[in-house]
Amino acid sequence: MTSPHFDFVKDFFNTNGCTITEESPSHMNIQLTNAMDEEIMNRPFYWHYMKKMNRQGEPMQLTFTENTDEPGIYLHAGTPKLHTIYETAMKKGKLTRLYEAVDEPQANGALTPWLVVNALLHYRGKQTKDEPVSVGLQLLHGTFVPRMMERISNYAFNMTVSDYTFPMTPIIQLKSAYKRIEGYVENHTSSQNHNWARDSHQQLEQEEQLLQSFYESGDMSEDQFNKEHEQLFKRYRPRIEMEVVNGGLFYLSQQTSQEMLTS
């Protein structure tokens, strides 16, 4: 399996307790669990009926392929099932509190609290794009670390505290920490190239003028003018909508915390 979609799908089902019953370089067969079937197969009536009849129900099997010749679901960027899986994955992985897994604690078993926020910045205006940001904020001193997910992705975390370690209480409250992250994002975006916003402004102004003069010539009702005007704003007003993908409290060992700041 070479495609990133394939690896992702495989991880997804493994993580969610489904079994891969068959696998070849170009296809894999997955036995869903009941819960996963309910989640992604979109057959609510079946499951409703099964539950009502007090029956077990039979979860389906899915076959994914990497080419169009084989029977099964052909995986590519647009595969509808893949998008259902994205939605499910994002729903299941939204909020967390994790403790670094420590086998042999150092002299000091204290774990430092961090707020980690992964967000998409949706650039909106004449044209559109997203910029992903991942920020870590150390909740004792307020230090920022950019590209946080990248840095922590190879460490192991658990949902419970490892033996001989203990989490320290944050000094910075979550709400104010999040405010700081918003401020960080603001700083970050204003340091970027603004051509996109300027273009959008220009276009907006130009079309506003056109509309205004047409309205003044008396060929348009006030109601229609207002509607059109609002639409121009929707289409062209440059703005960035921040959408948090996921985030949570991460407790890092002293050593790891240090590495975050230096790497």
């Binding site: 990133p4 979609h5 992702f8 991880d11 997804f12 993580t15 960027a77 899986i85 994205y86 939605e87 994955a89 994002m90 729903k91 299941k92 992985g93 939204k94 909020l95 967390t96 509190r97 994790l98 992964n118 998409l120 559109t128 794009k129 997203d130 992903p132 991942s134 997910m149 992705s153 192991a156 975390f157 658990n158 949902m159 993908v245 996921n246 949570g248």
Partner: peptide, 19 residues
């Protein structure tokens, strides 16, 4: 709350959908 694996998967899913 979600596990570390689920958290990473969600992050990955969003990066696949990033424009």
């Amino acid at each position: 709350l979600s596990s570390w694996e689920s958290f990473k998967l969600a992050y990955q899913a969003s990066s696949f959908q990033t424009i």
